[in-house]
Design a protein around this nucleic acid. Structure first.
Lengths: 112, 112
DNA sequence: TATCGTTATGTCTGAACAAATATAACGAAA
DNA sequence: TTTCGTTATATTTGTTCAGACATAACGATA
């Protein structure tokens, strides 16, 4: 039969999306590159879209997820806070667990 | 904090989507109404979109999921096969299990 | 054979969404 | 004080996708 079961998960706080796969992907790229514009480029996102995503994340989180600086050495940059890093880590864990769990469920379809 | 964790799952067979929440919703409505057009109306879908969805489901499934008849008494109709009914049931089960599982994972975010 | 409500399908239009472009503000360092 | 690469934001242009509209085919029944 060869079925695959796929999933997307996301976390909301009061009607706003806090985290989803795209946002986590972006946060990881920021962590790697140290700037929003480089992060956007590295994952093929327009700067504007990336900025909107990050802005939305920071607005719906209780604590700041990144610290962004404008001007200065190198023009500025963005980096994850400790809170941001643990959010990314927790999301990844949950996501991986979810995949593993769903794989155990697939036989219910394949045995039909 | 009051975070919510949400998910969408779907099942693919060779790059084609077999089942997802929208498709299952449609199949349930077909089962209830006995026709594709009535089902579409009942869940606020255009007939065309509903038809495309159903066509795609039947094309990617190994066995027919519905039997559609054209013309005749009442103009025709559509109804689920036994295979279709068990697909719907299995999908619903997996989906509910997934929600329950994700709820157990949420504390990982809330405790940050 | 005329009627009816359905399945089945093509075309066209508008609206939502994405991408491209432009530009201001910033502040460390040369 | 000039330069630089960045954050931050508005405006305009393009593209995709959903919805509306139109119509053919079908076959039991009256």
């Amino acid at each position: 039969m060869n079925f695959k079961i796929k999933s997307r998960i996301w976390i909301e706080s009061e009607e706003n999306v806090l985290l989803g796969e795209g946002r986590v992907h972006l946060l990881k790229a920021i962590n790697k590159t140290g700037s929003l514009s480089k992060a956007a480029k590295s994952i093929n996102l327009s700067y504007k879209k990336a900025w909107k995503l990050l802005d939305s994340v920071n607005k719906s989180a209780k604590h700041p997820v990144t610290v962004n600086s404008v001007g200065g050495k190198g023009g500025g940059g963005a980096e994850l806070t400790d809170y941001g890093k643990s959010l990314v880590k927790a999301f990844d864990e949950i996501n991986k667990n979810c995949w593993a769990f769903l794989d155990t469920q697939l036989e219910k379809i394949e045995n039909l």
